[in-house]
Amino acid sequence: MSLVASELTCIKRDRVLFERLSMSLEPGQLVYLRGPNGAGKTSLLRILTGLAAPDAGTVYFQGAPVSNDIAAYHKALIYLGHKPALNSTLSAMENLRFWLAQQYLTFDPKAAYQALEKLGLVGLEDIPVRLLSAGQQRRAALARLWLKPASVWLLDEPFTALDTQGIALLETLFAHHVADGGMLLTTSHQPLSKRAGPVTNMDLEYRL
């Protein structure tokens, strides 16, 4: 029950971002991926999700390469990238409904409403996402973490545009997820506070 990356290499435009990088993410572990801009944090996350292919190396989930049964891996995964993945003409509620349907999950309006309530989006759930502020859009995207039961969370800069109260909420959620035996890999430019629980740091260097 773990996510293991073995000997990953990623080359972008003739620059080696990382070479023979191995890491593992165990249940109940929060890995905090650090590194300067351009170090390859996003590239590593995208390789771990299966969105991008590494130039060398393999990603294993529960002992088998993820490409063997990518659907089973994606069932257990939530990835939130830089882009909020919300259609700007649809409302937050509609975005969540269609996203859940794509994940083979039933849409429970009550659960979705409760998640949006926790995130302070009550009263805004039915207006088009483009009318929300950047922080509110980020909150609407994060509502997915409450709605899909998934063991692996890969989050790319989840705190971007959030206010202090939003950050505290998210860190508390991280602690719960990890305490329940979930796996979490997150990048961020600001240090995690104690609320997030025990953290394993991992550093990526900027290589020339």
Binding site: G50, L51, H74, G81, H82, K83, P84, A85, N87, Q102
Partner: peptide, 18 residues
């Protein structure tokens, strides 16, 4: 275009549906 730019396409690729 829109799905690519707002990231919805990534989420579709990460769903269990082929």
């Amino acid at each position: 275009r829109d799905d690519f730019q707002d990231g919805s396409l990534e989420q579709v690729m990460l769903s269990p549906v082929p």
